[in-house]
């Protein structure tokens, strides 16, 4: 077993246990904090896969923006009474059984995975003109129209969030 595989096993074990902690924490604030640790691990995994720009985006956007939004809303609402209630819905064994079944179903195709044809972005090619530039060239030429649609989705989210959360006057 090489050093890289040992690092990967550490990440796999800690990410799985952090994900389990996220969905089993009683208090949503604890859940958000476990999620923060999980996002740091995911960013480290992206570094592992030579995706520096995405690791930075993961930390800035997910850990910096989305989780802070979650924390603000959780602390804004007063959830003292909710914490004493039961955590799971009544039919939770059915849900757990369903998940295990789908997991077994997913495992078989993964174990017979065959690679597709390789593309042109080898590690050397990315190193030559940096990861951010390589990503940006593809994003702003080939995927320009989806990029515009993404900005439109964000505009709809901004307007929709304000309309939904405003007080009735």
């Amino acid at each position: 077993m090489t050093l890289a595989q040992m690092f990967f096993i550490y990440f796999a074990v800690s990410m799985t246990s952090l994900a389990l902690l996220v969905i089993s924490a009683r208090n949503p604030v604890n859940s958000v904090l476990w999620m923060l640790a999980l996002f740091f691990h995911i960013a480290a995994l992206y570094l592992f896969l030579n995706a520096e720009f995405l690791a930075a985006v993961q930390l800035i956007l997910y850990a910096g923006a989305i989780l802070v939004l979650f924390l603000f809303v959780i602390m804004m609402l007063n959830l003292k009474d909710e914490l004493k209630d039961r955590k799971f819905i009544k039919g939770w064994p059915i849900g757990a059984a369903l998940v295990l079944g789908i997991m077994a179903l997913i495992y078989f195709p993964i174990s017979k995975l065959i690679h597709g044809p390789l593309g042109q972005y080898t590690i050397e090619a990315i190193k030559a003109d940096t990861h951010t530039k390589a990503l940006g060239v593809v994003l702003y030429t080939e995927y320009l129209f989806p990029f515009e649609i993404a900005s439109f989705i964000l505009l709809i989210a901004v307007v929709g969030a304000m309309v939904l959360a405003k007080r009735r006057v």
Binding site: A51, L54, L61, L69, V73, L135, A157, A161, L164
Partner: peptide
């Protein structure tokens, strides 16, 4: 697979996730 398309998709997914979190929390 030495292809950039997957990472482009990740950027779009992060965008949609941010929008979804904002709307869901609202």
């Amino acid at each position: 697979l030495q292809d950039m398309k997957g990472q482009i998709f990740v950027i779009f997914i992060i965008t949609v996730a941010a929008a979804e979190a904002a709307i869901g929390l609202a």
